[in-house]
Design a protein around this nucleic acid. Sequence first.
DNA 1: CAGAATCCCGGAGGATACTG
DNA 2: CAGTATCCTCCGGGATTCTG
Lengths: 129, 129
Amino acid sequence: MSQSHMRVSEQVNGSEACPIREIIDRVGGKWSVQIIVAVVDGPVRFTELERSIEGISRRMLTLTLRNLERDGLIERTVYPTVPPRVEYAATDMVRELHEPLAALAAWAAGNRKRIVAAREAYDRRNGSS
Amino acid sequence: MSQSHMRVSEQVNGSEACPIREIIDRVGGKWSVQIIVAVVDGPVRFTELERSIEGISRRMLTLTLRNLERDGLIERTVYPTVPPRVEYAATDMVRELHEPLAALAAWAAGNRKRIVAAREAYDRRNGSS
DNA sequence: CAGAATCCCGGAGGATACTG
DNA sequence: CAGTATCCTCCGGGATTCTG
C-alpha cells in the first residue's frame, strides 16, 4: 500500500513511540553524524578521525565512537601491534542510514538561505536582542 | 551527474560547513520533530498540540514553536477573538522536509531491534553498569 | 486560551593532564 | 597511538506560578 494513503503523522510518528526521536537520541550528538560520515567511506584510524573532524576533542571522539559502536553502527578493530592501531568501520546498518541522511543534507543545503532569511526577517519584526 | 560519482563524505558533509549539523541544531530539540509532524497535516491550535504531544510542557511547546517559526518552518496565525485563537501551520519548506524525515523514521523503525540487540551484546561483553 | 516569567537541575561537552 | 581520568561550565528543558 502506498504511503500516500496514510496521514503524515502516521508515516513519521509510527504507531508506537516516535522512532525519529529515538534516532535523534542516538545520532543527535554534536559529533555523531560527522563521525558516521567519515567512517562510511572505509575503515579509518583514530587519529585520522581526530584530524579530519575539525574541533573535536579526544574525549568526545572516544565517547561518540563508543556510543556508535554500542548501537552497532560502527565496528572497532584493534590490531595488537606496537604502537597500537585501531580502525573504525561502518556496519551495514549505517550504510543503509546514509541515504536518508544524504536526503536530509540535501534539504538542509537547499534551504539554508531561506532559513537564514526567515531568521533575519523574524528578528527584524521582533526584538533582535 | 549521478551522486554515485561523489564520495559519501562529500554528499553528506557538503563542501562547506556540515549542513546536517545545521539541521540537527535546528530540528534536534527534544520536541521539534513531533511538533513538525503534528503540524504538517494542517493548521493546529496551541492547545491541540499540547494535548496531542504527550509529555510536553507549556513552556517547551511555546519555545519550540517560536524557534520553528523563526526559522520559517511553521507559520503562526493569531485570530484576535476572545478568547484568543492561535493556529500553527507548516510552510512549504517543512513539507519538503517531511520526505527525508519519513525515510529516516523508516530506517529507525526497521533497525530498532538490531540496535537494541547490539546494545545488549555490547553491554554483555563489557560492564553492563 | 495561549502564553510569559522565574527558578532550578542534570547532563552534554570543553579544557587539561596522565598512561599502557 | 589511542585512549582515561577529572574538573568545570553552560544551557536544554522540567516544574511552577502569574496574566492579557
